[in-house]
């Protein structure tokens, strides 16, 4: 009898779980609204450089990404877009992807924005973006020197 009661309880629990699974959570009305965290993340991901030519800035971005071991997947000069990825060595099943956009500003500076993703999850660690911009700074500086 005790066994039957336990099985009954388990069935009810299973049923409840099933019913819960059927109701998909609806996206809230503020799904696309900017949050404070997003604004903060955007400031980490954006930096302005003292470069006037977009092509020079793009080549700097590509060189910096290559130095960091990234594979350049796509580049679009008219839009100032570079997409790159690298394997999370020695773990050869994970991937880090990054999209960098380069946009000229009205004051003759260049705005660079980077979005990085680790296995489909956005990276929100400011240190990651600081490291990237430090490498980019070096790459653009070397190019200027030459």
């Amino acid at each position: 009898m005790g066994d039957m009661r336990t099985i009954g309880k388990m069935l009810i629990l299973g049923g409840a779980l099933l019913v819960q699974g059927c109701v998909a959570p609806k996206p809230g009305p503020d799904l696309l609204a900017p949050t404070e965290a997003q604004t903060k993340l955007r400031s980490f991901q954006t930096r302005t450089f003292d470069v006037a030519d977009r092509k020079v800035a793009m080549r700097g971005v590509i060189a910096a990404l290559q130095d960091l071991g990234f594979i350049i997947e796509r580049a679009n000069e008219p839009l100032g877009l570079v997409t790159a990825a690298r394997f999370a060595e020695p773990d050869n099943l994970s991937v880090v992807e990054v999209t960098v956009t380069v946009r000229p500003q009205a004051d003759g500076h260049m705005m660079v924005r980077a979005n990085a993703i680790f296995n489909h999850t956005p990276i929100d660690d400011p240190k990651v973006y600081q490291n990237f911009f430090a490498t980019l700074d070096r790459s653009l500086f070397i190019n200027k020197e030459e």
């Binding site: 130095d67 960091l68 773990d91 990085a116 660690d125 990651v128 490291n131």
Partner: peptide, 22 residues
């Protein structure tokens, strides 16, 4: 044990050797 994402944007010790080779 896997590499943390912060390290992916840092130059590694092998980076100069790889650059020279490539």
């Amino acid at each position: 044990a896997t590499m943390q994402p912060a390290e992916f944007f840092e130059l590694s010790a092998e980076s100069p050797a790889h650059k020279a080779m490539q």
